[in-house]
Simulated assay, not measured.
Amino acid sequence: MSNVYVMDHPLIQHKIGLIRREETGSRDFRALVSEIATLMCYEATRDLKLEDVKIKTPICETTAKQLEGKKLAIIPILRAGIGMVEGMLVLIPAAKVGHIGLYRDPETLEPVEYYCKLPADCDEREVFVVDPMVATGGSSAAAIDLLKAKGVKKIRFLCIIAAPEGVERMQREHPDVDLYIGALDDHLNDHGYIVPGLGDAGDRIFGTK
């Protein structure tokens, strides 16, 4: 089964508390989502492989460390996932960025694909799929299905808030994908929203309703 990592870092938890608040406006919400993504990226890249490299400091030659291969990609699920990209690029600026567009059918709650643009060598990269919310897990699972169909083998998934139902589905359908979660909430309500959650992440990031 996939490994599930729920972040316990105090700064992550503090900032999640801020974005949950109804009174937090779009400007602050966007900034906080980006900051949370940076902190989560730090945790989620802890086990990236390193290799030795010879370098010259102003003093002498020495052996330093660098990322092995250095081929990473960030794939946000549109539209809310865009809010996490810049925060991750702060730490891994050389990463390529692709986009997967999915929306949730309001009747069936199942994902419908409407856009997909990936780096040409995506199948050679370690891919970080990002979306602030995992509710039913439908969109997340569908995005990973799409990536696997295109040959991507190394996938990690980052979300800020998840419902147990979505995590269970991800583990069932993609047991080889590690999940990094900011907060694991209680349940989904009858409308498919995470409780207590924070409402619609996309609307809050972009100021739409």
Rank of each mutant, 00 (worst) to 15 (best):
R172T: 11
R204P: 07
G182K: 04
F157S: 02
D121E: 12
R30M: 11
T208R: 02
V4D: 04
I55R: 01
D131E: 11
E107Y: 14
G166V: 05
V134G: 03
R20S: 01
G197H: 02
E124V: 06
L198D: 08
C116L: 08
D176M: 01
A64W: 13
A149K: 14
T38K: 11
F206G: 08
Q66D: 00
R21N: 02
P58C: 11
D178H: 14
E68S: 08
Y180I: 06
A44S: 13
S140K: 02
G137L: 04
A94F: 14
D190L: 06
I19A: 00
A37S: 14
P175N: 15
A80V: 03
A163I: 11
K150C: 01
V127Y: 04
V129P: 01
F29P: 00
Y180N: 05
V129T: 04
L158T: 00
G17H: 02
L147A: 10
D8F: 07
V6W: 12
E68C: 08
A201F: 00
A163N: 05
K71I: 12
L198I: 10
V112D: 01
G137W: 03
E22Q: 14
N3L: 13
A183W: 12
A64K: 03
M84Q: 06
K56W: 06
T63P: 00
E22A: 14
G81T: 03
E35R: 09
H14E: 11
V97W: 05
M84V: 00
R27D: 15
A95V: 01
D186W: 11
R20G: 06
R46M: 13
A143Q: 08
P10T: 01
A120S: 10
S139K: 07
M170W: 10
T24P: 06
I194T: 13
I194Q: 09
V127M: 12
G69E: 08
A143E: 01
G166N: 02
E51S: 07
I100A: 07
G166K: 02
V130C: 03
V33M: 15
G69I: 05
P164Y: 08
Y193R: 02
M7Y: 14
I36E: 08
G207D: 04
F128G: 00
F29N: 00
G197C: 02
T57A: 00
I77S: 00
Q66S: 04
D105V: 06
R204F: 13
L50C: 02
R156H: 14
L179W: 10
L50H: 07
G151N: 09
L18M: 14
D203F: 05
H187Y: 15
L72I: 10
L18K: 15
D178E: 15
L67H: 02
V195M: 15
L146D: 00
V33P: 04
R204S: 03
L48F: 15
G166F: 11
I144V: 15
E61F: 07
Y114M: 09
V195D: 06
V90G: 10
R20D: 07
